[in-house]
Structure formats: C-alpha cells, structure tokens
C-alpha cells in the first residue's frame, strides 16, 4: 500500500520516539520525507529520509527547514508537528528557562511551522497538518504544569488553523497517552520503585498495554491521508482507554 506516493511530508522531531515512527511509516507508504532536530542526523535514520538541523522554536531555523524541503522535494502537502519537550515540575518550581524551553518548542515551534508551511500548502492545492497534542492537555499529569499547558495550546491552535485555513488546509491533533518512549521512561524513573510504578500504570489501561510509537504513527497517517478528507479541527485520543476511566480506581488501592 502506498497512500502517500508523490506526497511530501515534513515531520518535526523525527530523530527518535514517536516522531521516528511517524517518519518510518510515511517512508513505508511512499512519501518523500524530511525531518529535523536540534542535533546532528541520527546514524540509524533511514537513508531515504532527509535531515535538517533545526530548532523549531527559532523562526529562522524553520524558514531554513522550509527552503530545504522545497528545494529538495517541492511544495509540502503534509506537516506533522511532533517536536516537543517536557519538564517535570510544578508552576512554583519552574524557572524562566523551563518556560522558554517548553513554550518555545511545544507552542512556538508548532506556530512557527504552521505559519511557514500553510501558504505554500494553499498555493499548491492543499494539505494536511497533524499536531501532536496530549491527553495531558485535557487532564493534568502531576508536576508537569508547563507541559500540560503547552499541549492545551496545541489543541487550541489546531482548531484555529482548521477554522481559518480550511478548506484547502485540514488540521487535526492526536492526543497520545502513555507511549513507551524515552520520555515515558524518564517519567517512571522519577518513581520510588520504577518497576512497581510501571505495573500499576499498566493495570490502569483497559487495552492491557502501553502504546507504542507505531500506534500513534498509524493514527497520524490516517489523519494525513485522503481517507480523512472530511476530518478537520478535531482531537483524537490514542491512550489504550486510560482517560475513559475514572482517576479513582479502588481496585488498585
């Protein structure tokens, strides 16, 4: 199957984790893909994927990314705003640097990329944007204040873009739950007993497992595909049922 033959996709933060799975899935289905990150190209990245060194929080970096992808492949039809950072702190603990880091990448980064790519998408006949939000943008994870708020920003911006830039541009958000990435491992590492914490977290998932980066990639690809042609301005949760259940689970006391 190659739903994305002839399409050009930009995925931010595709060096590892969820972004990497999204990049690989687009390549598998025939898209030309460019991704970016703050560091050098990861060694194990598929040779078909183009890498740009870019910090999405910096407008000039995003402009360079746009020029690079257009020079290489032509106009972009698909933008996946995946790049994001998390800081595990409450409001009182958070420093100005934490604010700049989280809001810079998670909020300003999404804004920078949308602003840069939407005009070309429109003049080339249309496109699809998929933003990576989070279940934490709806319900709070403890001690993740700026991260939670930054993802709520992503959800809000998703609706605005859909409203302002339809019909040529569709924009949706995916809200992942607990996905086994380095970011999730970092959260478990904070626990007194990381192994017990992981078991407890698992028991709270009706699906009986945590998500994989591929679970998120499959949803992102569907939203980017023509099968989702009437879908815009919405948020889609992929969390194994976690947020369908009450936060209070007496069975796990």
């Amino acid at each position: 199957m190659s739903r994305f033959s002839g399409k050009v996709a930009v995925v931010t933060g595709g060096g590892r984790g969820i972004g990497r799975a999204i990049v690989d899935a687009f390549v598998d289905e025939g898209a030309s893909v460019m991704t970016c990150g703050r560091g050098p190209r990861p060694d194990e990245l598929s040779s078909e994927v183009h890498w740009a060194r870019a910090d999405v929080s910096r407008p000039e970096d995003v402009e360079r990314l746009r020029s690079a992808v257009e020079d290489t492949f032509g106009p972009v039809q698909i933008l996946v705003n995946n790049a994001g950072v998390q800081v595990e702190k409450s409001v009182v603990e958070s420093s100005d640097e934490d604010w700049d880091l989280v809001v810079g990448a998670n909020c300003r980064g999404v804004f920078n990329c949308c602003r840069a790519f939407i005009p070309a998408m429109q003049s080339a006949g249309g496109g699809a944007i998929v933003n990576i939000g989070s279940i934490s943008g709806v319900n709070a994870d403890p001690n993740m204040a700026l991260y939670n708020a930054s993802k709520a920003f992503v959800h809000g911006l998703t609706r605005s873009i859909a409203v302002d830039h339809g019909p040529l541009v569709r924009c949706n958000a995916v809200r992942p739950g607990w996905i086994m990435t380095e970011m999730a491992d970092a959260a478990f590492a904070l626990a007194d007993d990381p192994q017990r914490a992981k078991q407890d977290a698992l028991a709270r998932h009706p699906a009986g497992r945590f998500g994989s980066p591929e679970d998120i990639a499959r949803l992102v690809l569907w939203l980017a595909s023509d099968e989702a042609a009437f879908v815009t301005g919405q948020e889609f949760t992929a969390d194994g049922g976690l947020t369908a259940a009450s936060p209070l689970q007496p069975g796990l006391f």
Binding site: N139, A140, T243, P247, L252
Partner: peptide, 11 residues
C-alpha cells in the same frame, strides 16, 4: 478536582 487529573499512577 478528581476528574481534572489523568489517572494517578503509584509513583
């Protein structure tokens, strides 16, 4: 505030 949170894992 119960439903303002994601399920609280035993951390």
């Amino acid at each position: 505030g119960l439903s303002a949170q994601v399920q609280q894992m035993k951390l």
